[in-house]
Design a protein around this nucleic acid. Structure first.
Lengths: 120, 120
DNA sequence: TGCAAACCTTCTGACTTTTGCAGATATTGG
DNA sequence: CCAATATCTGCAAAAGTCAGAAGGTTTGCA
């Protein structure tokens, strides 16, 4: 009977995992395929230790999968379309705040290799 | 140039807004259309004051829109498909934990009036 | 008119809990 | 031993939750 409560709480936990800019960038960084920790750390410009901590959180929820090759650990998205789903949230960002931001959104979409879904 | 950073931070703020079970239930509650605060409070079993506070947060991000009729305030989703997008996250919930949870997910989907996308 | 009740919002303030992050240490492979 | 990661510890900061009080409107009604 309290299924709504249970599921909404689990969903909330999931969303909290995405409530961190670096983790979102990490997910988008894996859009292209697997990558090792050092590689991720470089492209996100973060210390490898921090990246490893973020990955541990994502791994705990089975959002990423690991493959070891020698001393390198390669990670990939467990659900390839997770990155797409995240970007689907872009339309929900409040546009009102400085039009400048709209440009940032388009630019980011382009940088992340996603076709602009809202051309004008 | 730091578009990725800016956008990922805004997205993270958005996700943080969804990182609360009651707010998620509220969004799903508006799936069927507009509803007034008292009505929402009743179906969520929360004090109206709390509901109003949640609505204030969602309104600040333009996620809900308000319509006043007499002393009642009716709210609706600014983006009708927001509720769908939220439920699209269900597949990302870790299934491993007690199969029991899978049932809860199906049940919740049914309760929220969404066709089961993963029949077996 | 006036007043009370209904509906809702906002402010205040404290409280709990989380969480981000650094630095140290452990582990595994070359 | 070095490189690449993972995990542990601990804290400081932040953030968010929530209850209760108080304020605004609108409606109903005497």
């Amino acid at each position: 009977m309290p299924s709504r409560l249970i599921v909404s709480r689990e969903l909330a936990d999931l969303f909290r995992l995405f409530a961190h800019g670096d983790r979102l960038r990490l997910i988008e960084d894996l859009r292209g395929g697997e990558k090792d920790v050092t590689g991720i750390a470089q492209s996100l410009d973060l210390p490898a230790t921090r990246v490893s901590q973020h990955l541990a959180l994502l791994r705990a929820q089975r959002l990423v999968e690991e493959r070891r090759d020698g001393r390198n650990h390669f990670y990939r998205l467990a659900h390839p379309h997770l990155a797409d789903w995240v970007l689907d949230a872009l339309p929900f960002i409040d546009i009102r705040q400085r039009l400048e931001d709209a440009d940032h959104i388009d630019t980011a979409r382009a940088l992340w290799g996603v076709a602009d879904r809202n051309p004008h």
